Simulated assay, not measured.
Amino acid sequence: MNPQPYPLPGGGTGTELVIDQAAYHRQFAADVPAADAAVMAATQRPVATAALEEKTGEAAWKTIPSWALIATSDKNIPPAAERWMARRAGSHTTEVNASHAVAVSRPAEVTDVILDAARATR
């Protein structure tokens, strides 16, 4: 991760995290074809560190059903942490051998989880 400054509205500077383009394929999208990962690396939208530090309100998973897809080859969020969060939330869990870019590499499996959740909560 490469921290990069960016201007905040009204003044000041924030920090966003950018995945190094040379490491992007290996780190973020190992199961995506190299050419696609290169495009993803060049067009990535960094995450503002503030988004990782902000306090949230009441967690929705405490009162409504939840679904989780565990990407077992994720190098950004450890699968053990994903499993822990899913268990804590009582989520209906699906595991897929995929990288963090699971929505790109395994779109059918992601769609299935979304459709299962939609059908179950009608």
Score class of each variant (00 low, 15 high):
A29W: 09
N76M: 15
H92G: 02
H25Y: 02
V102K: 09
L52G: 15
A29D: 07
L17H: 03
A86K: 11
A118L: 15
A29P: 03
T111M: 04
Q21I: 02
D20L: 07
A35N: 07
A50E: 12
V113I: 06
T121P: 03
T94Q: 10
R87Y: 04
D74A: 10
D112Y: 01
W67N: 06
A108Y: 02
P79C: 10
A51R: 04
T13P: 05
A81S: 14
T49M: 13
L115P: 00
R119N: 11
V18K: 04
V39L: 09
V113H: 04
G10H: 06
A81P: 00
A22M: 01
Q21W: 00
P65N: 11
G90I: 03
D74E: 14
S73F: 03
T72S: 14
A34G: 00
S99I: 07
G11P: 06
V96D: 09
A37M: 07
Y24A: 02
T121M: 15
I19C: 07
P79F: 02
Y24C: 01
G14A: 05
D112V: 02
L115V: 12
G14P: 02
R88H: 10
T72F: 10
P33G: 08
M85L: 13
L69Y: 01
A23M: 08
S66I: 13
T93M: 14
V96W: 11
N76G: 10
A37P: 05
A59W: 09
K62V: 02
A29G: 09
A35H: 08
G90W: 06
V104H: 06
V39K: 07
N76C: 08
Q27A: 08
V96M: 11
P65W: 05
G12V: 07
K55S: 09
V113G: 12
V39N: 01
A50P: 05
D112A: 15
G11K: 12
P5R: 04
A38C: 01
T13R: 15
S91P: 09
D31H: 15
A48G: 10
P46K: 04
L52D: 12
I77H: 12
V110Y: 10
G12R: 07
T111W: 02
V32Q: 05
A103V: 13
P33A: 08
A41K: 00
P7R: 09
M85C: 04
T49C: 06
A38K: 03
G12F: 05
F28P: 00
G12C: 11
E95Q: 12
Y24R: 10
D36A: 10
S91I: 11
P46F: 04
A50F: 05
D112N: 12
E82F: 00
V32H: 04
R26A: 10
S105W: 14
A118E: 01
P33K: 09
D112S: 15
A89L: 11
T15R: 13
